[in-house]
Design a protein around this nucleic acid. Structure first.
Length: 532
RNA sequence: GCGCCCGUAGCUCAACUGGACAGAGCGCUUGGCUUCGAACCAAGAGGUUGUGGGUUCAACUCCUGCCGGGCGCACCA
C-alpha cells in the first residue's frame, strides 16, 4: 500500500515517536499524487517555520527512501510536502494486482472475532425502508471486515417474545372482531391479510394472544428471511432467538446476577433498577418491572452476555434512527457485562417523497412502503447501491418516482456498465496469447494509462479506510471513481488496434481493472451482469 | 424543556475526519458514434457551505449564540 509506505518513510525521516504521519491524496494534480501535512503539524509543536521544517524533512527523506520510488518531491506554499510516485512503483503494484487477483487488498493476517448485528426488526410485520438501509449497510460492512481478516458473525436478533408479540396477537384478535381495538395495535394491511388466511389458528388461540402473536411472528419472520436473503442478497450467519437463545438458556438471570454482584442495582417504587448513570446514561433504567416482568433492556443485556459467552469481545450494532436514545444504556450494560468493545452505528431516517411531496410513514398505522416493494420496483442492485453511496447519517430523501423513472440511470448502472465494457474487451482479446513476464509495462505512458493505474492501486487504501471508519460508503464511492476513470480511459485510449507491444501492456492494465471491479462487486454485493 | 442527527449548486448528495481554488450526478445550454458497447465522453452556466461571533498558519469540518428540519425522551420494544 503506497500510502502506508510513504508514512513509513516519513516516520524514518522525522524520528519523532507517537506522531501520526498523515498522508492523503490531494484533489489537484499540481499538489502531487500524495501529500502530507506533517511539517505544518510539527511547526505548531516546535514554533518553527513550517516551510523550513518541510525542507528539512525533504532532505532527511532522501537518505531513507528507496531509489526510484519517487519521481519528485516538492515543498509547497504553507508547508505541504507533495510526492510524485515513479512509474516503476505503479508497474510493480500492477503486477501485484495480477498476481494476487481476488486477494489483492485483503489482509491475510487473521484477526479477532467480531459480531455485526443488524436489521433485527421485530417480526411483527414486513421490513421498512430503514430496515433495508441498515441491512445493506451491515451486509457490506461485514464483507469488508471479513476481507480485512476479521472473523465476522452476521447476526439478526429476533425479538420473538414479550410485549410486542403480545400486541401483535391482540391486534389480530381485534382485526377479527374478537376484542376491541386499541390505540397501540398494529393496523397495517399485513395484519388483515394474515388474519384472512389463518382463521383456524385465530380460533384456536383466541384466548391466548401471545401464542397467536408468536404464530403470526413465525410467518412474518419467514417472509423477512425471504426478503433479505433471497431477494436482496443480504447474508446472515445466525438468527438469534430471544426466547430460545436468551430466555430459555437463562442468560437473563445470569446477567441480572452479574449486575447485582457488582452492586449496581437497587429497588425503587417496587421495580429493580440498574445504575446506568454511572456509565454516562442520563438516567437509571428499569430491569424488572413492579409486576415482576423483565424489561426489554434486561433481555438485551442477556443477549450481550450470550454474545460475550460465545467468545466475542467486539460487537457492532447497526440501529435505526429511533434508537439513538438507547445507545448510552446499551453501552453501559455491555461494559458491565464485559463485552469490551461495543460500537453502535445509527442510520438516519429517510423521507419518502412521492410526486414532489413527503409521504409520512408509520409502521403501526401500516402506512409505508416496504423494503420488499422497493426491491421489486427498482431491483436489488439499484436499491443497494443507492443506499450505500449515502453515508449513514444523512437524512436522505427517497423519491420513489425518481427511483422508478431513472432506474436505468441509477449510479449502479454506471459502475456496472464500466465493468461490462472491461469484460467485453477482454473477451475480444482472449485469443491473444503471451507470456506475462515478457510484457513491458513501461509502455503504459499516457496520462490515461497512469491515472487509471494510480486509481487501481488505491483500492487497498479504500478498503482500509472503509473498514477503519466502519463506513461502506467509502468503498461505494471508490467504485464510482474507478468507473469514471475507466470510462475516461476508454474514450481516449484504445486497447485493440494499437501497436503490438502496447496491446499486451494495455491488456495487463485491463485485466487488473477487471480484477478490481470483481473485488468491488463482490464486496458491495452487486451483480456483475454479462450484458446490459 | 432536555438529548442525538441534519442544513453545502435549481434538485439529490460528496468533500479522505482541520488542509491547498468546496466536488459529482440529475436537470439546463452546446459538441462528439464508418474501429474495443454512446447506459459513454467533452465543454459551459450554476456557491458568501442556514446565520452572527470565536479558536487556528488553515474551518463545510472544532467551540458558541440564534434560525429551520428529522428523531428520541415508559416500569413498550
Amino acid at each position: 500500500m503506497i500510502k502506508r509506505k510513504i508514512a513509513v518513510y516519513l516516520k524514518k525521516a522525522v524520528k519523532i515517536k507517537d506522531f501520526e504521519m498523515e498522508v492523503f491524496i490531494p484533489e489537484k494534480d499540481d499538489f502531487g499524487h500524495y501529500s502530507t501535512n506533517v511539517a505544518l503539524k510539527l511547526a505548531k509543536l516546535s514554533q518553527q517555520s513550517p516551510m523550513l521544517i518541510a525542507e528539512e524533512i525533504k532532505n532527511a527523506l532522501s537518505l531513507v527512501i528507496a531509489k526510484d520510488f519517487f519521481q519528485k518531491i516538492e515543498v509547497a506554499k504553507p508547508g505541504f510536502i507533495n510526492f510524485w510516485i515513479s512509474k516503476k512503483v505503479l508497474q510493480s503494484e500492477l503486477k501485484e494486482i495480477l498476481k494476487k487477483k481476488e486477494k489483492y487488498g485483503a489482509e491475510n493476517k487473521k484477526k479477532e472475532k467480531i459480531q455485526v448485528e443488524f436489521i433485527s426488526a421485530n417480526p411483527t410485520g414486513p421490513l421498512t425502508l430503514a430496515n433495508g438501509r441498515g441491512g445493506f449497510f451491515g451486509d457490506v460492512l461485514s464483507n469488508i471486515l471479513e476481507f480485512c481478516g476479521y472473523k465476522v458473525e452476521r447476526e439478526y436478533y429476533v425479538n420473538d417474545t414479550g410485549n410486542q408479540i403480545l400486541t401483535l396477537g391482540k391486534s389480530i384478535l381485534a382485526n377479527a372482531g374478537i376484542i376491541d381495538s386499541e390505540e397501540n395495535f398494529y393496523k397495517g394491511s399485513y395484519v388483515k391479510n394474515w388474519a384472512k388466511k389463518n382463521s383456524a389458528i385465530i380460533k384456536k388461540y383466541k384466548n391466548n394472544s401471545l401464542k397467536l402473536g408468536q404464530a403470526a411472528a413465525k410467518d412474518f419472520l419467514k417472509n423477512i428471511k425471504q426478503a433479505v436473503q433471497k431477494k436482496s442478497g443480504i447474508k446472515f450467519d445466525r438468527f438469534t432467538s430471544e426466547e430460545k437463545d436468551i430466555h430459555q438458556k437463562s442468560f437473563i438471570k445470569k446477567a441480572l446476577k452479574i449486575f447485582k454482584s457488582k452492586k449496581l442495582t437497587y429497588e425503587k417504587d417496587g421495580a429493580l433498577w440498574l445504575q446506568t448513570t454511572k456509565f454516562g446514561d442520563e438516567k437509571d433504567r428499569v430491569l424488572i418491572t413492579k409486576d415482576g416482568f423483565p424489561t426489554y433492556f434486561l433481555a438485551d443485556s442477556g443477549h450481550f452476555l450470550e454474545t460475550k459467552t460465545r467468545g466475542f469481545k467486539n460487537k457492532i450494532m447497526i440501529l435505526g434512527p429511533d434508537h439513538h436514545g438507547y445507545v448510552r444504556r446499551a453501552k453501559a450494560a455491555a461494559e458491565i457485562l464485559g463485552l469490551k468493545n461495543l460500537q453502535i452505528i445509527i442510520t438516519q431516517a429517510m423521507r419518502l417523497v412521492k410526486g414532489g411531496e413527503e409521504v409520512k410513514m408509520s409502521k403501526r398505522r401500516g402506512e409505508f412502503i416496504t423494503f420488499e416493494e422497493l426491491i421489486k420496483e427498482v431491483g436489488a442492485d439499484a436499491a443497494r447501491f443507492f443506499f450505500l453511496v449515502h453515508s449513514a447519517d444523512t437524512h436522505m430523501d427517497f423519491d420513489i418516482d425518481l427511483a422508478r423513472e431513472r432506474s436505468m440511470k441509477n449510479p449502479v448502472y454506471y459502475v456496472q456498465y464500466a465493468a461490462v465494457r472491461v469484460n467485453s474487451i477482454i473477451k475480444k482479446l482472449s485469443n491473444i496469447k503471451h507470456q506475462a513476464s515478457r510484457v513491458d509495462l513501461g509502455l503504459l505512458n499516457t496520462k490515461e494509462d497512469l491515472d487509471l493505474m494510480r486509481l487501481l492501486v488505491c483500492f487497498p487504501e479504500a478498503i482500509e479506510s472503509s473498514a477503519q471508519s466502519r463506513n461502506p460508503q467509502i468503498l461505494a464511492r471508490y467504485s464510482l471513481d474507478l468507473a469514471r476513470q475507466f470510462h475516461n480511459f476508454y474514450e481516449k485510449e484504445r486497447i485493440i488496434g494499437v501497436q503490438n507491444d502496447l496491446v499486451l501492456a494495455r491488456m495487463e492494465l485491463i485485466k487488473a481493472t477487471q480484477i478490481i471491479f470483481k473485488n468491488l462487486f463482490s464486496l458491495l454485493g452487486i451483480n456483475l451482469p454479462k450484458k446490459m
